[in-house]
Simulated scan of single mutants.
Amino acid sequence: MKKGLTVIGILLVALAISGCTKKAEPVAIPEAAPYKVAFIYIGVPGDLGWTHEHDIGRQAIDTAFGDKVKTVFIENVPEGPDATRIIRQYAQDGYDMIFATSFGYMDPMAEVAAEFPKVKFVHCSGYKTSENMSTYFGRIYQARYLSGIVAGKMTKSNIIGYPGAFPIPEVVRGINAFTLGARSVNPKVQVRVVWTNTWYDPVKEREAAVALLDAGADIITQHQDTVEPQKAAQERGKFSIGYDSDMRKFVGDSVLTSPVWNWGVYYVDTVRKGMEGTWKSDQYWEGLNADVVHLADFSPLVMQDVRDLVLAQKDKIVSGSWDVFTGPIKDNTGKLRVNDGVKMSDGDLLSFDWLVEGVVGKVQ
């Protein structure tokens, strides 16, 4: 009897314990954190030029990946110590990839990249790389050359004004390509350069354009970040060639065309590689063939025979059968710099420190 009571007791205790036990609940699986991408801007997206196009590229990332990514940007960051501080802050905040979109961010980014080996750093238009820092740019000089053909055919005074930001290889290369294009169809063309020593300053950009118009230019082009030089030309009843974005959309048909950026092609591919774990440091420098640069639509004021010339030359560049900096090329002192049939190397292009024949100005 005692044994039977003991068994019943054990069963009652077991039932009591099982009754007190909570039923298992589904385990919530946390969603993967978004891939965090930061952009450092020299200007503002509203400049309608350089920064505007980078921000369009950033938005392409959001469109491509949705909530799998988180992109942020900070604008108007000066080149120098402020850039170092901001890049470092993004790295400390756990951002996976950081893009710096101006040449002067190169040294600040290199410094921070050495401190955060797991973060991917990507610098626009520079040349310093490391295991976790790469560079990118586009062969915008190809589109510059094509726009020069338009200007060379459309000018009446044979004087073209060119406000330029800084006398560094990137800008010098663009001036030279534009001038070679213009003089390929009109050897009488002079391209007059005024240095503003700023990437983004609407007032200085306008002042430079006005000075060039006063000196007889009937077409204005630029290596500047805003539409102010384009507006100055329009107000004088003159033509212009834009840069960075299709500036005809913002100014009107006096803008004959524009060499433009298509950064989304590069940004989406680079972020995808980062997310997939296949990203590697490299030096990206593609051109018309990759559609990272192109020439904007022509103004209705550009004649059909001019359009045909441009498109024929574009086909030659895209095919790889010819490129812009193929000799003979003289500098603006008359010295032969590139022999007939010789194509300048990328190393030479990336260190350009002289101006071609037809440019009125100096590399200071």
Rank of each mutant, 00 (worst) to 15 (best):
I8E: 07
D218A: 00
K231L: 13
L355Y: 07
Y284Q: 06
H54W: 14
K23H: 08
P30M: 01
N176A: 11
G161Q: 02
A28I: 13
T6F: 09
T226D: 15
F65E: 08
V310P: 00
E207N: 06
G4Y: 12
L15H: 06
V356M: 00
D353W: 14
V363P: 02
Q142W: 00
Y141H: 05
V112Y: 02
V292C: 05
R139L: 04
K249W: 09
E357K: 04
K36Y: 11
A211C: 13
T196M: 03
V293T: 03
R173Y: 11
V324N: 12
P26C: 13
K2H: 14
G94H: 04
D107M: 09
D93G: 11
L350N: 07
G216F: 03
V172D: 04
G242E: 03
L212G: 12
R85Y: 10
V193W: 02
Q230H: 14
I220N: 05
M133I: 13
G334Y: 01
R248Y: 09
V191G: 07
G252V: 02
G43C: 09
D331C: 03
E286K: 06
G66V: 11
D107A: 14
K335A: 04
K68M: 06
A24Q: 07
V324C: 13
R173P: 14
G80W: 09
A33F: 00
K314M: 12
K70G: 01
Y267C: 04
V203C: 11
L349P: 01
N176P: 13
R236S: 03
V265Q: 01
E115L: 07
I42D: 02
D323A: 11
Y266S: 01
G4S: 13
D308M: 02
E79S: 07
K68E: 13
E228N: 11
N262G: 02
E170D: 15
G9R: 11
T221F: 10
D305M: 05
K273C: 12
I241A: 10
V255W: 01
G347K: 12
W354V: 04
K22M: 07
I160A: 10
M133E: 05
D315H: 05
G4V: 15
Y41S: 07
T326V: 08
